[in-house]
Design a protein around this nucleic acid. Structure first.
Lengths: 343, 343
DNA sequence: TTGAAAGCGATACCAG
DNA sequence: CTGGTATCGCTTTCAA
């Protein structure tokens, strides 16, 4: 049965232009391989009928999806925006599309997303954090989809990671606080059970304390989701303790801001009464008062490098290699030595 | 030629299980239509070989991509994160996937994205802002892809918009400032040439001034990109004017924060010396000091409604209808009557 | 409940 | 430079 389907397709155009589908396909993919005259004629038709080829059919028959998937745990933290942007820029140069997916800190959602990415035969996947069901890594490998972990180093060579070192960075920050004379140091971080970056930073904090013979006090630690209000509340509790901390390490800037604002409300002076160090180096940390000391995270470089690695894997079949990118502790005005505490 | 291809496909599985490809496809799509025994056998094979069907082929032959595209102008403003989340949640219930794309305030990028969405035969598209090349709307219509404009109302019935009214909201905020006795009112907003929401808010501001016989002073207006540092600089200039404003309307909260921090740095008291009203009602506005008066934008409801409309369009073939969602001016502590200006 | 076969829309190889 | 055609992997009638 010949249904005179109205759908515009290469076949339809070919008939209309009195050429073969192959020729139409060519003007789409390699126009220079078609005689100018025929090319123009077909281009005219395409223009006239607003023809947009079916990408699914195209990618399907060419065996390349041209797609790279990125899974972030949240899109509301703008540090991931910078990261994403860098990836997108690099990918675009290589003619690859980026599919941004938000796992919302849920491993269930994440595995659904990974499955979807495999279904769409992505040519690469960028993951956030290392900790997840190993079966997922295996699935990716099984489908020969290059992947790379970011925002966390990886203990296994089979799982390449392009990232900075959370432990090293958090260690540096905590040690700085100790170097400034603080012994009673609070910590606010993400929920470690669903966030291995937070867990690593917490671990680093504990290790530094222990190395400095400072007993670990669970009262000084708050694991909170990344809403600024949650850390605001947590910080309020911390500074209202009978023996409040003299310094606070916040494993990300949003939480550091929440803490800072809590102090302002309670008339606790930062840094005179409490030193605060954040993590991420968001633009806002530079303009808030006082400007926040923080750990600069190389989100852009990390994104760029991850994209680069996947491009090489997808196009040149190169293996993805782990890479560690350095962070930098940036001391601004929210920290000071404990000795000068009294004004 | 029979290439013993290693790719796992329904055909391969069918052979392996001694059934037809149709049956394998059925256990994938409607398992209940297959005899339990055969079903289990095939499910076993699928499990064993980690089979993930090729989604492109699937969507391609079933003529439904199951995809809805969302184009936001930036992902670094977390107001879009809330919006996106709401969309995602609603879509998920309907079994549709969301493809998030970042146009980065560029109309060129946006049209490329729209083209890509058409190529992938998205079943719906959610756009941000109304102003764009009409040809794009036409293209979408031509491919019978339902779409909806958000974050801006639409003057045309052919372009449905599910949004709040930027003018009305900005009018309310500006009028409130006037009601508080302010006559010298500054404005910081986005770059109106690439952001029609900002343009509408600026226009509302001008209209209110004019209605109140307050001359428009270009020196009091700053159009800036959404980086907090840019508004920080702009606000610094505004408040350093020979005749500084007594109130400032910021067309979004990020810029309001930039302004607030500028004031703090310059020891200009908010609200005693300067009243500030923001726009968006980000969570941070509730914890900053002073808590920021702002216009609450119904990002979640808007996202939910937009998703809903597209679902109905895609699945039930219902036309997308325009809808206006109300905003709410929330007065907190960054504003006060001008009369009580002197402490 | 199952199977055979006809697409879906483009690509790409191989001739001519 | 152009055309014919097999193919990609799955879904979907239509019969059996």
């Amino acid at each position: 049965m010949k249904k005179p389907d109205k759908n515009i397709t290469v076949r339809w155009l070919a008939r209309k232009a009195n050429v073969s589908v192959a020729t139409v396909s060519r003007v789409l993919r390699q126009p220079e391989a078609v005689a100018p005259q025929t090319r123009e004629r077909i281009l005219g038709l395409i223009e006239k009928h607003q023809f947009v080829p079916d990408g699914r059919a195209a990618t399907f028959s060419s065996r390349r999806s041209g797609l790279v998937g990125l899974i972030v745990p949240t899109i509301s933290n703008s540090i991931y925006a910078e990261f994403t942007e860098a990836i997108q820029n690099r990918l675009q140069e290589a003619g690859l599309d980026l599919l941004i997916a938000n796992a919302n800190y849920s491993s269930e959602i994440e595995s659904v997303i990974i499955r979807r990415l495999i279904e769409s035969r992505a040519e690469g996947v960028i993951l956030t954090g290392y900790k997840r069901d190993p079966a997922l890594y295996q699935l990716l490998r099984h489908y020969k989809i290059p992947f790379v972990v970011t925002w966390s180093t990886s203990p296994k060579r089979t799982v390449p990671a392009i990232s900075f070192d959370n432990r090293a960075a958090a260690t540096e920050a905590t040690e700085m606080l100790i170097k400034l004379g603080h012994r009673r140091i609070g910590l606010i971080c993400g929920v470690t059970s669903i966030n291995d970056r937070a867990a690593q930073r917490l671990q680093a904090y504990r290790d530094v304390l222990s190395r400095n013979k400072i007993p670990f006090d669970p009262d000084l630690v708050a694991e909170r989701p990344f809403e600024i209000e949650a850390s605001n509340v947590a910080a309020t509790r911390l500074v209202s303790l009978a023996k409040p901390p003299t310094a606070l390490f916040c494993a990300n800037d949003i939480q550091a801001l929440g803490a800072l604002f809590a102090c302002q409300r309670l008339k606790i002076r930062v840094p005179q009464d409490l030193s605060i160090i954040g993590f991420d180096d968001l633009p806002i940390t530079r303009v808030v008062n006082p400007p926040l000391s923080t750990v600069h995270v190389p989100a852009r470089r990390m994104g760029y490098a991850a994209a680069e690695a996947l491009i090489n894997a997808a196009r040149k079949n190169l293996p993805v290699r782990s890479e560690t990118i350095s962070t930098e502790l940036i001391m601004r005005e929210s920290t000071r030595p404990i000795r000068s505490r009294t004004p």
